[in-house]
Nucleic acid binder design. Structure first.
Length: 489
RNA sequence: GGCGGCAUAGCCAAGUGGUAAGGCAGCGGUCUGCAAAACCGUUAUUCUCCGGUUCAAAUCCGGAUGCCGCCUCCA
């Protein structure tokens, strides 16, 4: 079985062969630390988190680098607006970012370098490019000369002639070509600066990734990832810088995740439809958000809406209620043992096949949506077997169910799902939903208490009245031999 | 203007040559004092449209239409 990955560079699925057997070096472009992270950052983080988890599951040792851009126009603007330093701003938002990532259950990368820690190395790389004739100095700025790098455009499938035809770029007389980009910018009044051979200044955006990836992963590493918007110009420019300097391929495989749209529109600050991770996690359990992302392929666009998240919530609820159902059986007296029913054997077989199907789907360019389909097959079969015979199961069936539960959890672990104890999951969900609706939990439970009394007196009229009353507030009651529980619809 | 992507049921979505996964929603049934959950059945004779290749096409090729992204900071 071979892992195949869609490579943006070739626009094809390719068999994954790492530079060094058994090891994967991976670089994913991180955030510019000037504001809270949004749902788009969350998707990118989840996508690459699942890829890393899967590569590890597959037996690879993964070294992941995710950088922080901590010097940049937007950070400077924010620091000036708040009358503070770029360091204060970037540290604040790096901390916020880390909290969001922890909340989303993203495994921490091996390295999280910051651009400002690599200024001397950036200067050295720029000097190399100048010496090779790939860059030029103008008034303390240093620009990359795209025309001097013949394969410029190979990642994004563009060429300089076509692009300049309908160019919408600022014409800058100091540049030889409109697509030349800044490697080093002379500092203006009130901007942070570092000493350099070209005077006081600061690095351009693209150079940091070329430097940090080379320092931490070497000249050529396996996977370079990021959002699809980074293909051009950012990743194109990284290739121009790195490959221009050392003549070796920068990364073997380029992976780009699709965008999140909000009600079919692009999420952007100008449209005012940006949802921060912090806001979303007040509304939905992190695993619901993760499940929502994994339902689609990582390269396709995903439409984020209250409706789609509610559907994801329903899906997660289905899985967790099945896990809870198995847990509950442990305290139920077993039924007398007997030979396994055909359905039971069928489940055992499905469970046995799950790892292979999981691997096959994930090997096919990380097809998480298909994996979820397999998980639901198992869930349905478990439910079918547990629902029978008054909740009692035979010891033999219990073994099968336990194996099924383990298989679900193991698969879930690689996807970053089912980390929660089912009981806890439902409690958290209930509290979160009640808070969203502004419901008074104590009042609800008082009514439920009254209904329990009414039911013991067989006062069905009053009992139903309470049910209806609560249902109007989207509170759904569930009666069982163990008592009455509730959830939000 | 240049480059690229997408189009599968009411909605989301997998499927890249062998006869349409899965989820959500709906309907009918079983269960239940009534419900909920769960299960069973049901919901696309068909994959935007037109042509072509093939024994065979949602899948490959050509064309049309529609939507979207990138080309400017952007996950």
């Amino acid at each position: 079985m071979t892992l195949k990955i869609h490579n943006t560079l070739t626009r094809r699925k390719e068999v994954f062969v790492p530079v060094q057997e058994g090891k994967v070096g991976m670089y994913v472009c991180g955030v510019t630390a000037y504001d809270m992270c949004h749902v788009g950052h969350a998707r990118s983080a989840v996508v690459f988190d699942v890829i890393v988890r899967y590569l590890k599951y597959r037996g690879y040792t993964v070294e992941l680098v995710k950088n922080f851009t901590d010097v940049d126009d937007k950070i400077i603007a924010r620091a000036n607006a708040e009358k503070t330093t770029i360091r204060e701003i970037s540290e604040r938002y790096i901390a916020e970012h880390n909290q969001d990532m922890d909340d989303l259950c993203i495994e921490r990368p091996t390295h999280t370098p910051k651009a400002t820690d690599y200024i001397p190395e950036m200067i050295a790389l720029i000097e190399t490019l100048l010496n090779k004739g790939l860059a030029y100095v103008v008034d303390g700025d240093v620009y990359y000369a795209v025309e001097a790098f013949p394969s410029y455009g190979k990642l994004s499938g563009r060429n300089l002639t076509d692009m300049s035809a309908g160019a919408r770029v600022d014409v800058d007389d100091r540049k030889r070509n409109p697509f030349d980009f800044a490697l080093w910018k002379a500092s203006k009044e009130g901007e942070p600066w570092w000493e350099s051979p070209w005077g006081q200044g600061r690095p351009g955006w693209h150079i940091e990734c070329s430097v940090m990836s080379q320092k931490l992963l070497g000249d050529t590493f396996d996977i370079h990832g990021g959002g699809e918007d980074l293909v051009f110009p950012h990743h194109e420019n990284e290739i121009a810088q790195s490959e221009g300097a050392n003549g070796k391929p920068l990364a073997k495989y380029w992976l780009h995740n699709g965008f999140i749209k909000i009600n079919s529109e692009k999420m952007s600050k100008s449209l005012g439809n940006v949802f921060t991770i912090r806001d979303i996690l007040k509304q939905y359990h992190p695993e619901v958000v993760r499940f929502f992302f994994l339902q689609g392929h990582y390269r396709s666009a995903l439409d984020f809406s209250d409706e789609s998240l509610s559907e994801a919530r329903a899906g997660m609820e289905r899985c967790y209620s099945t896990l809870r159902r198995i847990d509950a059986l442990k305290s139920v007296k077993p039924a007398p043992d007997k030979a396994p029913a055909p359905k039971e054997q069928e489940l055992a077989q499905k469970v046995a096949e799950l790892p292979a199907k999981f691997t096959e789907s994930m090997d096919d360019d990380f097809n998480t949506a298909r994996v979820l389909g397999y998980l639901f097959d198992v869930v349905r079969m478990i439910n079918g077997l547990v629902g029978e015979e008054g909740g009692k199961v035979t010891p033999t069936l219990m073994v099968t169910l336990e194996a099924a539960r383990k298989a679900l959890l193991e698969t879930g672990r690689v996807l970053g799902l089912f980390h929660e104890d089912p009981e806890q999951y439902f409690l958290k969900d209930r509290d979160r939903e009640a808070m969203k609706l502004g419901l008074d939990v104590r009042a609800i439970e008082a009514l439920i208490g009254e209904r329990v009394r009414a039911r013991t007196e067989k006062n069905w009229q009053r009992a139903d009245q309470i049910r209806v009353e609560l249902a109007e507030k989207r509170v759904i009651l569930m009666d069982s031999p163990q008592g009455t529980t509730w959830r939000i619809q």
